[in-house]
Amino acid sequence: MDRRSALTPDALAMMDTIARTGSFAAAARELGKVPSALTYSVRQLEDALDVLLFDRRSRQAQLTAAGEELLNEGRRLLAEMDAVAQRVRRVSTGWEAELTIAVDDVLSRLTMLELCEAFYALRPSGPNEPGPGTRLRLRTEVLAGTWEALVSGQADLALGVPADMPAPPGIEMKPLGAMPFVFAVAPHHPLASLPEPIGDDEIVRHRAVAVADSATRLTRITVNLLPGQDVLTVSSMQAKIEAQLRCLGCGFVPEVLVREHVRHGRLVVKQVKRQRRVGGMAYAWRSAAVPQPKKAPQGLALQWWVEQLASPATRQALLDRHHPQHGLRGCE
């Protein structure tokens, strides 16, 4: 018998029973076997792995170091097998094995995690049954990257896509809301002391801070950068705000994200001659009319998320709720 054939679920369960009951005789009674049959099975397993699993000098079922390792890994594998079986059963009832959600960098992480918490708390088959079994995968994107993740098939749902994107066949889109932006600089930045409104001829003389669009195939979106202006490019809106706090540049930032910085004087909002930016956002998902290969058309997990987004309060929280109101809850 080779090693792979020897490491069956039955063999792992046998090891668990022997260790839990403390003796071959007790394990044999629980498994409905005679002790000699159990001893023979253990010897077969030891021969296949070329190790000793139990210390024969002890009257009790005393595991060796190798036996302890096999027991620990065996219990983990058995738990994973049970989890796979549960997920397969959920898929057969319409719950996806995995759901990927692309989220624009400026949306509320707090709200997203609370939605995940509510999703994992679902008990579709009853209060004492396991949850949906769908694995959630969240990915953070910027500007056109959020849209690209959806249309390229890398995401099933996209939150915060530009509202003016034309939806191709197979994609449904609904408004998420508007996020106002303000032009902000550090209080010791040269633009902070200029009379308002400030024109582009002054702004272009100072470095801008920009967040890199995460798209790799679609045309990347460039917002509010002037021709010839020096640019510091960062990977996230939070990094952009940090850079502007350090007086490394200027630029438009979401008002809700810098509200506290402005209130405490760490940033100064300046009126500019150009039109104040308002970022119109939408959410989009793959339509049930165009099923994906090897996937159920619009599974129950996606339906649940779309239903949550139908709530105006949820959409507003994604745009506005960036600071915790209460302490974090511990695991239960």
Rank of each mutant, 00 (worst) to 15 (best):
T93A: 12
T93N: 12
T93F: 09
W95S: 03
E96W: 00
L99R: 07
V103M: 03
D104P: 05
R109V: 12
R109P: 09
L110W: 00
L110R: 08
T111M: 09
C116F: 13
E117V: 00
A118W: 14
R123W: 13
S125V: 01
S125C: 07
G131N: 13
P132F: 02
G133Q: 01
T134D: 06
L136K: 10
R139N: 09
T140Y: 08
E141C: 03
V142S: 14
L143E: 06
L143P: 02
G145K: 09
A149Y: 01
L150Y: 08
L150C: 04
V151Y: 00
G153C: 11
A155S: 05
A158Y: 08
L159I: 15
P162G: 01
P162D: 11
A163L: 08
D164E: 15
D164C: 05
D164R: 08
M165I: 14
P166V: 15
P166L: 04
P166M: 04
A167T: 12
A167N: 11
P168L: 13
P168G: 15
G170V: 02
I171K: 15
E172A: 08
K174S: 12
K174M: 15
P175T: 07
G177S: 08
A178T: 14
M179P: 02
P180W: 07
F181Q: 06
F181R: 07
F183N: 00
F183C: 02
F183W: 07
A184N: 05
A184D: 06
V185D: 04
P187D: 09
P190Y: 02
A192S: 13
E196N: 08
P197N: 05
P197Y: 05
P197L: 06
D200S: 04
V204E: 11
R205Q: 15
R205M: 12
H206T: 11
